[in-house]
Design a protein around this nucleic acid. Structure first.
Lengths: 167, 167
DNA sequence: ACTGTATGAATGAATG
DNA sequence: CATTCATTCATACAGT
């Protein structure tokens, strides 16, 4: 066991609570929230506010990183599905527009494939598409009003975090 | 053979390509580069982007670790003297070369700073060329513009990575 | 089979 | 927020 106390080494319970909070939608807790969270988690062992701060920072970054890296791997798979689906809705408005706009060559395939997820005209490159998709996904989530009362299953006080963004 | 697919175990070819890339100066590939590399390496067997990412991360860290350990073990005593003496030879041939080669703003500073931390005397066993390489390599490479076309000797498509930092 | 080493993987802690 | 570094855990493999 790392008794090396030079570095915080979260207990299983602490990780669970943090993960639950993350899964429930919390991404970048405010200072107040961090305080509350670390305060509650100190029940399970030593912990500082900065640990909580870093944890969310890292967890978010790495989820994003993971997703970004998966893109190329996933793509070949989705490509087939999308292509198939494409045949059934090839008469939709968006597709029509794009198809004619980008009737350039093999690039058309990629664009159309993209449109299933994101019907915008400005996506001539895949990377841009992906960027936009990721951005939107996370933007939605990160800026959503978050209201959650987490009741961990262990014997510790309820962790009640209420936010009101857009004050 | 570890058919245990719980952990990536690179093929000899994969390791060779990665090593060549590393030796050619690549240290921290960008996400795009990682994608390309892993894509190319998938030719030799299963591989994910994260494997490439971790490979470079580990390889760099361990080379640094090894060197650090070596320096500390070899010359823990003379270190201070050497550092002082170093100030008197700051106009030596090597420094001149470096400074002029990198007459680009603070890059030169950093190189000299680096050299002060790693006294030349402690590595008399190496040739001058090797000394220079050991001292400058790490700091230089990571901040250098990297443009490299690696043609592996096996039968796989050319791996062409072109960067333009400082765009 | 046991043990040590190389190295894949993960993550806490920053930094800019 | 992205990127990077340090440290540690985990495991495949080699030598005995």
């Amino acid at each position: 066991m790392g008794t090396k106390c030079g570095r915080w080494n979260p207990t299983a319970e602490q990780v669970k609570v943090l993960t639950d909070l993350f899964r429930s939608g919390l991404r970048t807790p405010t200072t107040d929230q961090i305080q509350k969270i670390s305060s509650q988690l100190s029940f399970y062992g030593n912990i500082e506010s900065k640990n909580v701060f870093y944890w969310f920072q890292n967890h978010k970054a790495r989820e994003r990183q993971k997703r970004r890296r998966k893109v190329l791997v996933d793509e070949p798979i989705n490509h087939i599905e999308d292509t198939i689906q494409l045949n059934n809705v090839s008469s939709s408005k968006h597709f029509q527009e794009i198809s004619t706009t980008n009737r350039e060559s093999d690039q058309a395939d990629r664009v159309i494939e993209t449109l299933q997820l994101f019907p915008l005209h400005s996506l001539s490159e895949y990377s841009d598409t992906e960027k936009l998709r990721l951005f939107t996904e996370e933007y939605m989530r990160d800026n959503m009003t978050f209201s959650c009362t987490l009741e961990a299953e262990m014997d510790h006080p309820t962790l009640d975090l209420r936010l009101s963004f857009f004050s």
